[in-house]
Design a protein around this nucleic acid. Structure first.
Lengths: 186, 186
DNA sequence: TTTTTTCGCTACCTTGGGTATCGATACCTG
DNA sequence: CAGGTATCGATACCCAAGGTAGCGAAAAAA
């Protein structure tokens, strides 16, 4: 039991500041927007040196992705049938994106990934894949259908957020559900 | 006839290089990606000084928006009924986004707009509004419905482009049409 | 006490958007 | 042809922000 897992690496242990940095990240993004939420400012808001941030995350994008993972948590895949499952998933991700800072951070890191293949890989692997796989299992749909589902739902929510600066209102989220469900129920 | 429209402003007239700059923009974005397509490089590719570019467009984002307007052209609002009209519109914008450089430029400028309210205003006013108004007229739908339609279609296409780096394949565009049409036909 | 690793700090590099300045040039008007 | 005006290209520059290097200090384990 002690051969595979090293009981503890030597040297000074890391301070448990990840949660503090995540909170500072969302707070800074909420207050200043994504672009002005520089790593300098995030570190300052967390009471941590900028070099400490870069010692833990290789880039700003990687920090944001981990922050979003922490903010989203596991998908609550609850629901009797396939329809209820998709509906609750759409409402869940819409609500998360509506949380202060989360939507801006999501849209911002997605934006950066457009012209940064390395970040796109991180975003796809660390953020999208876990939820995609969980959805494949829960919905019993093939990969390409789930990817299309994600494109529609997340793409729509982020486009609204990007064009207006405000998250999508509940009525439109409901319309999104009503549009998506029949397409997959058939 | 000569009192309202000044026949010509005094001074050296502008050289007709807009088309050259637009072409150089798309070519540079296609070859290097959005982030590495700097104004410096675009100007060099167009055989023009960087200061000349900034004399005509107030920012890189404004240049990209005008370039996209030039690339899109007017929406071909042809089609007998509402269904055919929406279908042809979706296929048209999907095809445009698939053109080399256009999709990257679109996703890139959209990304920048997320945390740049001034650019968001330009994007909304100069790019989205004309097509939105034309669609409102052609489809006879209220503004919020047309905005929702645009969020779904453009958001989905851009999300696919941003996550994979490749435009959406025809089969998925067809699925998008099949998902959207019933929602608006009813 | 020595070793090992992280910490905060400061200084620095690089890229890229955007601006200021200046001589040269093209065009119109008198 | 001379003068006025506005653009052109070129160079130099400012600034913000992502990211790195080096260093002494501090926190553990051996």
């Amino acid at each position: 039991m002690s051969s595979t897992t090293s009981a503890r690496p030597p040297g000074r242990p890391r301070a448990g500041v990840n949660a503090v940095v995540f909170a500072a990240t969302l707070r800074t993004v909420r207050e200043l927007g994504y672009a002005r939420a520089t790593v300098d400012r995030i570190a300052a808001a967390a009471g941590v040196a900028k070099t400490t941030v870069y010692r833990r995350w290789p880039s700003k994008g990687a920090l944001i992705v981990d922050c979003l993972l922490d903010a989203f948590g596991p998908a609550p895949l609850e629901g009797a049938g396939q329809a209820e499952l998709m509906s609750s998933t759409i409402h869940w991700i819409a609500a998360k994106i509506s949380e202060p800072g989360v939507g801006d951070a999501f849209a911002g890191v997605f934006s950066d990934a457009v012209s940064d293949p390395a970040l796109r890989e991180i975003l796809s692997t660390r953020l999208q894949d876990p939820y995609r796989i969980a959805l494949q299992d829960a919905l019993d749909e093939p990969e390409n259908r789930v990817l299309f589902f994600i494109d529609v739902v997340v793409g729509t929510l982020l486009h609204r957020m990007g064009m207006t600066g405000e998250p999508m209102v509940d009525a439109d989220v409901a319309a999104l559900v009503e549009m998506v469900l029949p397409h997959f129920a058939g």
